Simulated assay, not measured.
Amino acid sequence: MAKRLLSEIKHDKLALKHVQFGDVDGMKWREFCASLWLHTVRTMGGVWRCHSTTENLSKRSPSLTRLLDIMGEAALFTKVTVYSLLACVAQFAVGFAFAQKWGNKCSAVDRWVLVWLFYDAIVHFTLEGPFVYMSLVGNVATSDNLLAELWKEYGKADERWLYSDPTIVSLELLTVVLDGSLALLLVYAIIKDKHYRHFVQITLCVCELYGGWMTFCPDWIIGSPNLNTSNWLYLWVYLVFFNGIWVLVPGLLLWQSWRDLRRMHQYPKKKNR
């Protein structure tokens, strides 16, 4: 049975060699697999007489539906997906290396703060900077370069990044110029133990949190028509994780600033007594 099925698939009239599997994702891939299976079963004269929906398949063969789900998830991971995720890991590694080199005299906590700040600045200047340029001279969707491919991958989860959405471009312009510069200034303030360290840190964190809120709130209000949450990669990795860390870390840094400022305020009072 299995050998006959593979033979039918190999010589099938659908001419599979002309199908670009990397361009088929999510439900399109699942529907394609279902259609292929049904076509093959019919040509074999099988006993199944299902029609064109995967719903009918799930009633007759849950294991087949699970197989199609797995194949659909596998189709999400194209070469661009892997390279994009590896690029993010590489940026973090560079930030970590910079923090170890220039923050060797700082406390352990501040060294991790430096890791984040270097990573933050690298992302703003090397990823979001080119995005702003591409969006001002055209848009990501029509651009043809390595960084455009990375943003096209993210655009599968939020298509506003593909077509120069005014709100997104405005926020990113502010993020690159202001947040990137503040991140580097804060790196200097921490390494040199400057008195304005927490003023800059609070300002940067508020800017980051404001940027995150304004990135998603306008789309939430109108029902999130531009967000694709149909699978775990787009929802939990692209949308939640890669945006959530710019909420979590600034929140923790605000708490650190509040704690340190309170300590500095209490210490002179105890000294005067």
Score class of each variant (00 low, 15 high):
A2L: 08
L6S: 14
L6W: 09
E8V: 11
E8M: 07
H11M: 02
L16G: 15
L16S: 09
L16H: 10
K17E: 12
Q20R: 12
D23F: 00
D25F: 00
R30C: 03
E31I: 06
T43Y: 10
M44G: 10
G45V: 09
R49K: 08
C50W: 05
H51N: 08
T53C: 02
T54G: 06
T54K: 04
T54C: 04
R60D: 14
P62Q: 06
P62G: 08
S63Y: 07
S63C: 05
T65L: 06
R66Q: 03
L67M: 11
I70R: 04
M71S: 10
M71G: 10
G72R: 01
A74T: 13
L76D: 13
V80P: 15
V82K: 07
C88P: 05
V89D: 10
F96E: 01
A99H: 08
K105M: 05
A108T: 15
D110I: 12
W112G: 08
V115T: 06
F118H: 13
Y119N: 08
Y119W: 09
Y119R: 10
A121D: 12
F125I: 11
E128I: 01
E128N: 07
Y133L: 08
M134I: 12
M134W: 11
G138L: 01
T142G: 06
T142W: 00
S143N: 05
D144Y: 04
N145P: 02
L146E: 07
L147T: 15
L150H: 14
L150P: 14
W151P: 15
W151C: 05
T167F: 02
I168H: 02
L174I: 01
L178N: 13
L182P: 03
A183S: 15
V187M: 09
Y188K: 06
Y188T: 06
D193Y: 00
H195D: 13
Y196H: 14
R197P: 10
R197A: 13
F199K: 11
V206M: 07
Y210F: 15
M214D: 10
T215F: 14
F216W: 11
G223Q: 03
G223E: 03
N226H: 12
N226T: 05
L227V: 01
L227W: 12
T229G: 08
S230E: 08
W232N: 13
W236F: 15
L239M: 08
F242V: 00
N243L: 02
W246V: 01
W246A: 00
G251I: 03
L253S: 05
W258C: 12
R262M: 07
H265R: 09
Y267C: 09
P268C: 00
K270P: 04
N272S: 12
R273K: 13
